[in-house]
Write a protein that binds this DNA or RNA. Structure first.
Length: 435
RNA sequence: GCAGGGGUUCCCGAGUGGCCAAAGGGAUCAGACUGUAAAUCUGACGCGAAAGCUUCGGAGGUUCGAAUCCUCCCCCCUGCACCA
């Protein structure tokens, strides 16, 4: 018999992880009284999840740890249609085989976070294409569509801006998305007695749609809970860096870059993020906050956050690699790195490139750095050059040197004849290996 | 199909014949200050080391000169019509 942690709801609330719920206190009680089955959906809109998906993903795990059974739904079907919720414009459709490929990747990714072998509340991963895929249009219209009122649908906040906004619009396809997702909930209710759907706060309309449908089709009593949208205190979008989205796939965002992302969290956000993204207890987090408040200089919270989240996503190994690189680059000991250290940095995932010595003179430094994706354009490098912000193995490079790639990467500047650590600005590092 | 409104540099959004590589804001990058933070200030922000080159949905045209004018085409929005 699974033990239920009746404090779950209070804990979620205290973490700020509850945006809205249906049922209010009834839901809290319902969760405290027994092991429930809940689900959250992830649509394949890319070949990897990103940190924006982390809140619902971790929430599934929080529920599981508290004794409930999580179902992760990967939207092989809904991904073919596109969720219009709060989107400014119609999205372009991806081909079925692309979506199928992404679906498989997401299934694998999602599976790493929840436990499939813990008895009664073992997790499930499902794909809604399995039940929507073979449904025919007429059945859908008669069995599902009949339960929806267009009048209600167009009043949903999530599609309103698309309907009201001049210059926008919404296709029937996207408009129908809500029906598909609602049907998922009803179907999971039938299959697994799944009685709770969780999701981002943008999913509220879709979730309540599902609750209504489950009641109408099966007289099922179900609940919804939404998680807050992650926002930053400065108003910029969470989860983006200069180089774009922060992905969970280590091939798309290295553990080092991932670690650095969290390390850069603003003070104003970091304690909130600890509550959102880690499993540290609220009292531990409060203790960290208290210590930081009483300490001069750099707070401890960011490194705790980076460590916890990186370990969660990339494991102990990924975390250690990220820490090794960070330590080497930011603790000032660059000159002390041994040859094996430098080789290890490369293995650990420090961005690196291999250049051929004979070709160095072909391009200016600006171009080499652009090619290595250290900067988007030579202009940016040029700007940095003018401010002495480009360092090769510690030497500031000048404008004049820039033109001659070979001079920049000259042999006397090399470490162990072939390694050059280029620093652009305060944080960007790249290892060049010249052969 | 008809009528009207639109498509501008990453985003929003000015610009209606030269002073426009194109206002302003946001985002982003670099510098100062710091704690690899925030705020603030400074600079950059189509590409190029530079000379210079390429842009304002697409293709042509008018003009000494076009993002701005004309023609055709593509796409989006709103309404009407068609259909019933």
């Amino acid at each position: 018999m699974t033990t239920i942690d009746s404090a779950l709801f209070d804990d979620l609330q205290a973490r700020g992880l509850i945006a809205q719920t249906t049922g209010g206190d009834v839901l809290a009680e319902y969760l405290a009284e027994g092991s429930r089955t809940l689900y959250s959906g992830f649509d394949p809109t890319a070949d990897s999840l990103h940190i924006g998906h982390l809140v619902p993903l971790l929430a599934l795990k929080r529920f599981q740890l508290a004794g409930h059974k999580p179902v992760a739904l990967v939207g092989g079907a809904t991904g073919l249609v596109g969720d219009p919720s709060f989107k400014a414009a119609e999205r372009k459709l991806n081909t079925p085989d692309i979506v199928a490929g992404w679906t498989n990747k997401l299934k694998a990714q999602v599976s790493r976070f929840i436990d499939f072998d813990c008895g009664e509340n073992s997790a499930e991963v499902v794909n809604n294409l399995d039940w929507v895929g073979q449904m025919n249009v007429l059945d859908f219209l008669r069995d599902v569509g009949k339960h929806f009122s267009v009048n209600n649908m167009i009043n949903k906040e999530s599609v309103k801006q698309r309907i009201d906004r001049e210059g926008a619009g919404i296709s029937f396809t996207e408009f129908t998305y809500m029906l598909l997702q609602s049907y998922d909930f009803a179907e999971l209710y039938k299959r697994y007695n799944c009685t709770l759907q969780i999701g981002g706060s943008d999913q509220w309309g879709n979730i309540t749609g599902g609750i209504d449908l489950a009641r109408r089709m099966y007289s099922g009593e179900t609940y919804g809970l939404t998680l807050p949208l992650v926002t930053k205190s400065d108003g910029t979008k969470f989860g983006k860096t200069e180089s774009g989205t922060v992905w969970l796939d280590p091939a798309k965002t290295s553990p080092y870059a991932f670690y650095q992302f969290w390390l850069g969290t603003a003070d104003a956000d970091v304690y909130k993020f600890l509550r959102y993204f880690t499993f540290l207890s609220l009292s531990d987090i409060a203790a960290i906050e208290e210590r930081d408040r009483n300490t001069e200089g750099r707070p401890e919270a960011q490194s705790v956050l980076a460590k916890e989240v990186t370990r969660l996503i990339h494991g102990e190994e990924g975390l250690r690699a990220a820490e090794r690189i960070t330590e080497a680059l930011f603790s000032g000991g660059l000159e002390q790195l041994s040859e094996p250290d430098l080789e290890q940095l490369q293995l650990d995932g420090l961005p690196s490139s291999t250049l051929v010595r004979a070709q160095l003179a072909d391009k200016p430094l600006t171009q080499w750095l652009v090619d290595a994706e250290m900067a988007a354009s030579g202009k940016q490098v040029k700007d940095a050059l003018g401010r002495g912000a480009v360092l090769i193995n510690g030497d500031a490079i000048t404008f004049d040197e820039n033109l001659d790639g070979a001079a920049c990467f000259n042999e006397s500047r090399a470490r162990f004849q072939r390694f050059y650590i280029v620093k652009l600005g305060k944080k960007k590092y790249h290892l060049f290996v010249v052969e």
